[in-house]
Design a binder for these strands. Sequence first.
DNA 1: TAAAATTAGATTGTGTACAATTTAATTCCA
DNA 2: TGGAATTAAATTGTACACAATCTAATTTTA
Lengths: 142, 142
Amino acid sequence: MKQLKLSNQLCFPIYALSRLVTSHYLPLLNELDLTYPQYLVMLLLWEHQTLSVKALGKELRLDSGTLTPLLKRLESKKMIKRVRSKEDERIVNIHLTEQGSQLKIQAADIPNQIQCSMGFTAEEFKTLKSVIGGVLRRHAEE
Amino acid sequence: MKQLKLSNQLCFPIYALSRLVTSHYLPLLNELDLTYPQYLVMLLLWEHQTLSVKALGKELRLDSGTLTPLLKRLESKKMIKRVRSKEDERIVNIHLTEQGSQLKIQAADIPNQIQCSMGFTAEEFKTLKSVIGGVLRRHAEE
DNA sequence: TAAAATTAGATTGTGTACAATTTAATTCCA
DNA sequence: TGGAATTAAATTGTACACAATCTAATTTTA
């Protein structure tokens, strides 16, 4: 039953790599008082200023069950504001606060530090990005 | 600040892929009454019959804070037994039960079904396995 | 050989993930 | 146009992850 050996599976390396990458973010994000998923939300907000919960969920492939409490924690840390839309009261829009906006400056060097600490070669980075990107695109529902 | 755009990061595709893969296991594992991390434990036990909590943790890169409750759940489902070692009472050895052992038969086809459902090409599979394997090996502390 | 250090697991507490359900608002359409 | 369907978030409940701490057993070593 060679198929069922852990070492022959692709799933496990993917799962282990994902946790390894997150663990490398941890000390850097601790300084910003962010968790890794919270950092992903902030990345999107630094880029777009304002996004609905639904839009964040679509980008990050996370549902409201994950996002609602995460966003409440970001709000309690004064990094974002949750504002229910006047035009459509089902929608909650997420805005950066001044403090959340400023955090971008402190975060500016994180990508470099991760690149360094993970020790990806340029070749590995390119290959992983392109192969994984292709797989994800095929499975994008929309 | 191009560096901080989500779409330029490698971390997010890795994180998203890991969750995508897990989501493809879900319907298959539901039939065996296993979660994905529980399935990883079972894979190792089907291969080795008996492993200590520490050995499982080393293979899966998980600590006792994750494994202890997970193993208690597997035990309550009668798939494994947790037995404290007589020679060294710090050690807890995990054994398959007859039921846990039999489950291997039902699991036999899962790798094929995942290969199918994820739609990896042979090329993608090989590339991901080799590149990710290389990265993980570099970061193995042992 | 007895105190110090190490080791293996368990426990505690926080923060995701995600399925399933609920609530409230909006849109569809007979 | 008004009830049915849809949509956006929130809520509920289960199960990881993982840091930090704790407990008990074993090894080290002064």
